[in-house]
Simulated scan of single mutants.
Amino acid sequence: MNAPKLHHYVPQFHLRRFADVSGRLWAWDKQNDRIFQTSPGAVAAENQFYRLTQYEEEGNDPLAMEKQLSEMESEVSLITDQWLEWLQQMESLKKLPIPRINRWIVARYLAVQILRTLDTRELLSALVELERGAPISADEARELHTELMWDPCMVRGLTKRFMRSFWIFARNDSETPFVTSDNPVMFRSPDNRRWVKSIALVPGAYLVFIVSPRVVLYCHPRVGSFRELRKFADRLSPVVLDDSMVASENTGQVFMASRFVISNRSDFTAERTFAPTIGTDTYAPLLT
């Protein structure tokens, strides 16, 4: 069997949920302002992205991380497929049955997804280069990144935080689909006025994860005013999402994306309009 060369930093099962009826994705390259059609296997991926070159010379399997990620993705795909099936027919305020083991598997998946992206690798490399005052090689960047991903304290800390959060699901029945990106896990400030790159830098920030074009998951920490959300934990939100609310969530994918915003349709007008406002307060009133 040939070793996998193209390693995805966003799982293909997630990307496939955003494909159109032909099984293809539409992607907007926000760096070059270019829209193109592609497949779930050809985007958010790089050759040997997770190859453990630092252990290869010792005779260890250099693809151990890629294999572990694949196993985790298979579990999460099955769990969330079932969620999506239930949520499609579920009435508002009904509780989604989430066994503790499934909650842990998905919480760990969210933690790893934050750490595994190209955005994280580039940020880590930039910090090291700033400290050293010199650029680092691609091999060193890969080794630093994979060591971070394999840091049990880092993964465990994030996993516990997400497990303890109030999980609230919302269904999108509007005409506007949710989009995703090459850096799909988003964070919003407690006052809902801005997207942030890291929950560590903004106390009380909460996680937003678009599961499919029709479902979003919110993970609110059990602090401050969010404690009042306990009665909605693990339930389908009573809030009816309209087009403007969906468009607001989609701005987070534009903010988080390293490069590609991904959709099941070719119209990225709203995303292209929002992109130049990043770093300003233009849309702050709309995020409340």
Rank of each mutant, 00 (worst) to 15 (best):
E66Y: 09
D119S: 13
P152D: 09
S70Y: 08
P99R: 00
A200C: 01
I210F: 02
K95P: 00
P152S: 08
P184V: 11
V211Y: 07
G133E: 01
D243Y: 00
R51C: 07
T146P: 00
K94C: 08
V128E: 11
E58I: 03
D191W: 01
D267E: 12
W195V: 06
S125L: 03
R17T: 02
F209Y: 15
Y50S: 08
Q68M: 14
L123M: 12
D182M: 06
E75H: 09
H145P: 03
F13H: 13
R259M: 05
V112H: 05
V196L: 06
S92F: 07
Q12Y: 00
P152A: 11
I199T: 02
E143T: 15
K94Y: 07
P177N: 06
S39T: 15
S198V: 06
G204D: 10
F187K: 05
L15M: 09
W28H: 04
V112I: 15
M186T: 01
P177H: 05
R230H: 11
T120S: 11
E228G: 11
E66Q: 10
F187C: 09
L217Y: 04
P203K: 14
F49A: 02
D81K: 12
D33C: 09
A3Y: 02
Y55S: 04
S174L: 03
L158N: 07
L52G: 03
P177Y: 01
L217I: 04
S212Y: 08
W167L: 05
R121M: 14
